[in-house]
Structure formats: structure tokens, C-alpha cells
């Protein structure tokens, strides 16, 4: 958290000050990137760039404290991720002649490639066993540092629904850890 200096940094960022914009990026980029990676976004780095540009474009209208700002940024990240997934789904639906794809080389399953790139990170494997909603809650709470209420606002769900998702996610993670321990 930026802390006491947040108001001044926000005001400077709203004026377009490069140093203030960088300070905001440094503070929030790890969480946003982690959220997008944990959600298995196809290109988390590019998507994170889109998120921060959108933050700058709308920062003039933001009013609130640092916690609200953090929640607001993750709301933008959540929406951008949903947009990217819709775009990807439309592309998959488009009919393409396989012969046109041949010069591009072999194409595998995106999620398998992502898993391979991430290696043997057991925590990520455990995350993959959660439902998308459960994963949203866990990532926003653990990586985003958001409260149950803030998570509910980001996901546009009721507080009780988020608590239920969280409880089930924790139970699933516990089972997953148990399996890892047994198989290890």
C-alpha cells in the first residue's frame, strides 16, 4: 500500500504526472499481473498494459481512498479479462481453413502450454481445480488484497455469495493440497 502519500500521488496522476503514474503502476502491477496469470489469461502482460492504460483514461473521474482505488483497478482488470475472453471465444468460432494455419507451425492447447510454461508450481495447479468464480474470489482476496465486500463489488455479486464461493474454494484448495501431499 502507498499509504499516507496516496492522495497526493492520485492528484498528481490525475494531472498526468509521469512519476505519479509510475508509482501507481509499481504498486498495483504485481497484483494485476498475478490476477491475470492466475486466471490463465492468454497474454497477461499485454492485458495488464491495457488495464493500466484504461486506468489512466478514467482516473480523472475517480474519487476515493487507496483501498477504493485498488478495488477500482481490479474491477477494470476483471472487465478487461472478460472482454479478452469474449474476443478469444469469437476468434475460435471463426471458421479458418487449416491449410492457412500450416505455415504458422504446430499449435497446441493454450492452457496446456501455459501450464508447461509455469512448470510445476503446485499452488497454480491447485488454483486450476477451482471453478472460475472460486478462482476469482481467491485471487482477488489473496493477490489483490481486497476484502469480501470489495471483492463482491468487483464481481458484482452479493457479499453472501462471495463468502460461499470463498468457503468452497478453501475446501477445494485443502483437498488439493492433501492430494499433492499424498502423491508426493
Amino acid at each position: 500500500m502507498i499509504g499516507d502519500g496516496f492522495d497526493a500521488i492520485l492528484a498528481a496522476a490525475q494531472r498526468g504526472d509521469p512519476n505519479a503514474l509510475e508509482a501507481i503502476y509499481r504498486e498495483l502491477a504485481p497484483g494485476v499481473l498475478g490476477y491475470l496469470r492466475g486466471q490463465r489469461a492468454a497474454d497477461p502482460e499485454d492485458l495488464a498494459g491495457e488495464v493500466f492504460v484504461a486506468v489512466v483514461e478514467r482516473i480523472g473521474g475517480f474519487r476515493g481512498d487507496e483501498r477504493a482505488f485498488r478495488s477500482w483497478v481490479f474491477t477494470i482488470a476483471h472487465h478487461r479479462l472478460a472482454d479478452a475472453r469474449r474476443r478469444a471465444a469469437r476468434r475460435r468460432e471463426a471458421t479458418v481453413d487449416p491449410r492457412e494455419l500450416a505455415p504458422l507451425g504446430p499449435v497446441g492447447d493454450v492452457s496446456e502450454e501455459a501450464m508447461a510454461a509455469l512448470g510445476t508450481r503446485w499452488a497454480l495447479t491447485a488454483l486450476d481445480r477451482l471453478t472460475p468464480d472460486q478462482r476469482d474470489v481467491v485471487l482477488l482476496r489473496i493477490l489483490g488484497g481486497l476484502s469480501v465486500e470489495e471483492t463482491a463489488r468487483v464481481l458484482r455479486k452479493r457479499r453472501g455469495a462471495v463468502k460461499t464461493l470463498q468457503r468452497r474454494a478453501l475446501a477445494a484448495l485443502a483437498r488439493s493440497i492433501e492430494r499433492e501431499a499424498v502423491s508426493g
Partner: peptide
């Protein structure tokens, strides 16, 4: 473990590119 796996500082070149876009 989740934080160690996912919460990483962006590489310098990526951060520079993102901040320049901002």
C-alpha cells in the same frame, strides 16, 4: 506459495513499456 508464484514484479522492459503507454 500462491503469492510467490503469482506476485512477481514485472520485468523492467515490460514495466517501461507499460508506463510509457500510461
Amino acid at each position: 506459495e500462491l503469492r510467490a508464484d503469482l506476485l512477481e514484479e514485472p520485468p523492467a522492459d515490460l514495466a517501461m513499456r507499460h508506463v510509457a503507454a500510461m
